[in-house]
Design a protein around this nucleic acid. Sequence first.
DNA 1: CCTTAGACCTGGAGGC
DNA 2: TGCCTCCAGGTCTAAG
Length: 282
Amino acid sequence: MPEAPEVFCVLQDLKPRLEGRQIQKVSITHPKLTANLPCEQFEADLTGQHFRDFHRLGKYMVFELDDFDLVVHMRMEGKFFVLDRQAFEALDPIKDRKHIHAIFLLDDGRILCYRDTRKFGRMHLYKKQEDWRALPVFDKIGKDALDPLLCAKELYEKTRRRKAPLKNVLLDQSVIAGIGNIYADEILYAAHLSPKTIASHLDLDDWQRILDATRAILNESISCKGTTIRTFSYGGSHAGSYQDQLKIHGKEGRCERCENEIVHETVGQRSTWYCPSCQKEK
DNA sequence: CCTTAGACCTGGAGGC
DNA sequence: TGCCTCCAGGTCTAAG
């Protein structure tokens, strides 16, 4: 489901609801959700902790607590929402509760719920350390796509020996963190580059165009509260609107720039839309 | 080091 | 209505 802009919006929604709140009780009902510790350990460690700070790296969220860092990746379908007790108890056990795999009872009486239909999402819990960016889960994660310190030169140098299609490399979170299948298509369209271009064929200017396009598109999406194509929502039921700004991903018919036919095919095992006429293969 | 299947999960959509 | 296949915004692994 979510790419960087959607994760940003989820975090933005959660922050005012969670900041300063104490966790009174935790219940985790899907054993695989907790990636680095048993559920029971999570439940015990989280109990009594307060939400202190909130961070994002790529598609990961970091909840800084008193003594721990809770790291969450929602993968395809994970969702967070906060309900008051009445609304929580009104949930239909089959329809609404079936895929809720974690609940956090807060000290204001409300309940933070995590729902994940496909059970791909994962949570990691670590003893707090000076710099959350140094947590093991981030060992192979590159700079965030919106990190001001990220520069075209770094991307260029990291991809000198990559023979894979450019699209795959944009999706590689160790190169640049936060881009997923939708924004990869949009970024490549904006940069006039074919998703099938061999990544090592790009020069520094190409990477600068990619980086500029990435920043423009992700920021614009954030201002639209993200993209809602299938099931993305934040705060329970709010939808983003960037889907209305998409230029190429999921489009049929003619390219709005050059009037030629848009192509939809699989590139690097992912569904890909592009315009072969104005997205050059280098 | 790099690349490519396959696996992990469930439900919705469309064809018959 | 039911069954079947394909598809989905992600990432890990095993193997070449």
